[in-house]
Nucleic acid binder design. Sequence first.
DNA 1: ATGGTTGCTTAGCAA
Length: 256
Amino acid sequence: MRVATWNVNSVRARLPRLLAWLEATRPDVLCLQEIKVETAKFPAETLAAAGYHAAVNGQRTYHGVAILSREPALDVAAGLRDGGDDAQARLVSARIGGVRVLSAYVPNGGEVGSEKFAFKLAWLERLRAHLAATASAQEPLVLCGDLNVAPEDRDVAHPEAWADTVLCHADVRTALRRVMDWGLVDTFRLHHVDGGFYSWWDYRQLAFPRNDGLRIDHILATAPLAKRCTAASIDREARKGAQPSDHVPVLAEFAT
DNA sequence: ATGGTTGCTTAGCAA
């Protein structure tokens, strides 16, 4: 089972690249973030013609997440549904081929110390509570998405320049670790120990040519799936050429 | 301290 996650930064602006990438890569599951479109306007027919079902939690202008799958998505659920502020479309989950799949777009956090930063930390804690309330770490489950956290300094091209930013601050790293402590493994780190692998480069300041990147997009798996994880990769090529997303797809392969 | 770029929406926000 090939699972991928990609912050496409507008599914409509990226549709030609998305279709070409699906055709070339043929993942069984692709989690999308920042689709920036309401559910009713999601290009479901076009993607169905390409062979993919879609479970969508959309929203106009900002945010929005989806899960594309070759098998039908069952038990689709949108949002944290915990009674808290759930206005932003940042989570959708589904059961696909016996695996629980979550596509998450964690809040960026604005500036350290801001209200948005507090919302990010609270959202990660709510995500941990959501997992604890709705799933088991002993079942096959993947949490995929733009988690907006570089877990360690080896995930950052210039750690000193990014220290104490919203993507690297000790508080967000701790918050992500608490989510993982529920029972999730970083599949990428099962197969790669070195630094130098990034999933996002800012559009500005020639960040990609300078390779000033961070690894903030992740595929996290529970133990029963992690032990079946045979490969993991980041498709850096997807950042090249005309009109790329600022993020690239991250992949993990699971033996069936 | 600010700006740089992209997308949505149409001047300004978010990332």
